[in-house]
Amino acid sequence: MNNDLLKNWLEKQASLVLDGAMATELEKRGVDTDNDLWSAMALVHSPESIVDVHRSYFEAGANIAITDSYQANVPAFLKAGLTAEQSGKMIFDSVKLAQKARDAYAETLEDSVRQATPLLIAGSIGPYGAYLADGSEYTGDYDLSADEYKSFHRARMQLLEEAGIDLFAFETQPKFEETKALADLLSSEFAGIPAWLSFSVSDKAELCDGTPLTEAVDYFNQYANIVAVGVNCTSMDNIEGLVKVINSVTDKPIVVYPNNGDTYDPKSKTWQTNPHAKSFSELVPKWQAAGASMIGGCCRTTPDDIREVAAAIKK
């Protein structure tokens, strides 16, 4: 999958549907995610559950599966007791499991539908803060040099590339300097692979490190292989306004995948249910009207939510 082909799909489809939460669905299947590796621990102990979750999202209407590698990185697996070889295999397998689900689902489609339906695998690259497992992706409270960021992300990106991803998903990124390092690494060492870049933001149209969203988005206009920019893991109520802000400074497709409306406390690592949350079917048309063209769900979202997104987009 190259940049032009992904762009052609976006132009052809008007919108693409992303999948939803992995950890939430794994927990429903009895998988323990209460650890520093979070959902990535399932790569070690319950890989078939990951296949099942990916398949459920494709069946709900998702065009893009995001690999279970957000918090999967070699240092974290080493800390958990795996060898370097085993750690690399887990990251590589995160792609193969998504591909297995995609291919099984594709076999259920008629040839004409399969040929007309993009079914892509996005390799998830979480921020360095996700490795810290302390909620830093929501604060940006860490500092590395550009070379240190590249060194941290390089091995995972190489493994995802080798396994055959269609694009990278640089997601929940709270720090402008880290995203600049990622984009530079992508251009210099992974030039044939497109990526979307999705920021972790505060309630004030700023990255969590305080960088104005307009400044960050505008910076990446110079990178042709950053094929979409946007936000994820934020409140559904924030999306429409953020899309308008992003749309004011870029012509790139805009990607959004918010949480389901519940609120998260990164210190206690607990969620509080929001009984007044609006529905995706109500909000997706507003996001599209504001300029979003890649839409899915993040934490706490389910296949039912993605089914709502897909139905709203079809309308």
Results as ranks from 00 to 15, higher is better:
1 M>C: 04
3 N>A: 14
3 N>R: 14
6 L>T: 11
9 W>S: 09
12 K>Q: 15
18 L>S: 01
22 M>T: 08
22 M>D: 01
22 M>R: 05
23 A>H: 06
35 N>K: 05
36 D>A: 05
39 S>T: 02
43 L>T: 00
45 H>V: 12
45 H>C: 03
49 S>D: 09
50 I>C: 00
53 V>S: 01
54 H>S: 02
54 H>D: 04
55 R>G: 00
59 E>S: 09
60 A>I: 08
60 A>M: 10
64 I>A: 04
65 A>E: 03
66 I>A: 02
68 D>M: 04
69 S>K: 01
70 Y>K: 03
70 Y>N: 01
73 N>L: 02
74 V>S: 05
74 V>A: 03
75 P>F: 10
76 A>D: 09
79 K>R: 15
83 T>N: 08
84 A>M: 10
86 Q>K: 14
87 S>K: 09
87 S>V: 10
88 G>S: 08
91 I>C: 03
93 D>H: 02
94 S>A: 15
103 D>H: 06
106 A>E: 12
110 E>G: 14
110 E>I: 13
113 V>F: 00
113 V>W: 02
114 R>S: 09
117 T>E: 08
119 L>E: 04
123 G>N: 12
123 G>T: 12
124 S>W: 09
128 Y>S: 08
133 A>W: 07
135 G>W: 10
135 G>D: 05
136 S>R: 14
137 E>K: 14
144 L>T: 08
145 S>V: 12
145 S>R: 07
149 Y>T: 04
151 S>P: 00
152 F>W: 11
158 Q>S: 12
160 L>E: 08
163 A>Q: 04
163 A>F: 03
164 G>A: 11
165 I>L: 06
167 L>E: 03
170 F>Q: 07
177 E>P: 00
179 T>A: 07
182 L>G: 04
183 A>F: 10
188 S>C: 05
190 F>N: 06
191 A>S: 14
194 P>T: 14
195 A>N: 06
201 V>N: 06
202 S>W: 03
204 K>I: 01
208 C>L: 12
208 C>E: 14
209 D>L: 07
210 G>L: 10
211 T>R: 07
211 T>V: 09
213 L>N: 03
215 E>G: 00
217 V>Q: 06
218 D>S: 15
220 F>P: 01
223 Y>M: 02
226 I>S: 02
228 A>Q: 10
229 V>Q: 05
233 C>I: 12
235 S>M: 13
239 I>D: 04
245 V>S: 08
245 V>Q: 07
250 T>A: 10
250 T>G: 07
251 D>P: 01
253 P>N: 10
261 G>I: 13
262 D>W: 12
265 D>F: 12
266 P>L: 05
270 T>M: 05
271 W>M: 12
272 Q>D: 08
272 Q>S: 12
274 N>P: 07
280 F>N: 01
281 S>I: 15
284 V>D: 02
289 A>T: 12
290 A>H: 06
293 S>D: 03
294 M>S: 03
300 R>I: 13
301 T>E: 06
302 T>I: 06
303 P>G: 10
310 A>V: 04
